[in-house]
Design a binder for these strands. Sequence first.
DNA 1: CGTAAGATGAAG
DNA 2: TTCATCTTACGG
Length: 191
Amino acid sequence: LSDSLKKILAKTSVEAGPLLLGWQLIRELPEGKVSGRIVETEAYHQSDPASHSYRGLTKRTESMYKEGGHLYVYFTYGIHYCLNIVTGKKGVGEAVLIRAIEPVEGIDIMKRNRNTQNLQMLTNGPGKLAQAMQINNTQMSGQLLGKKTIYLLPPTKKIDDEIMASPRIGISQATDVHWRFYLRDSSYVSK
DNA sequence: CGTAAGATGAAG
DNA sequence: TTCATCTTACGG
């Protein structure tokens, strides 16, 4: 991991959430490279009732308690996988959910994986981007980011003035905090 | 064990 | 608005 990325991943999830916007998420698959620019994230923390880590360390959530830079993948609703990047110190349960990316490379592969031709609908949701990038099990959970198969590249331009914050999606607790972060003008943000 | 709910998505 | 679909966590 680069020094600039390490610096971000050492922070709390609430600090790292907006800082991960603009980074390019890359995954090497046997059939080729797929990638996209992160345009939407959400922060979760053990102090937060909406977080999987709120009720303490369990088998599912143990990855969230690892040091920043690990991955947390969970399965939900009997169908979907969601990708998180763990942040902060070892022993503290927190992570940033990657909610949407703007497709960049391997768009044909992702269209095939998703069984759709619609570019806007390809990766604009946590379950959708996981399916597009063939994250279809929890094997990656607890693994380190930065391997050949999954890594991040830094933003290519300044986006500070495009970052917005709002309540998180799909939760029933802690709906008051604005821990969802997204790029104002992106058409690849979730609906 | 039994069971309820879930950081979602697609279809009706 | 409904439903698919099944793991996880928690209670008995």
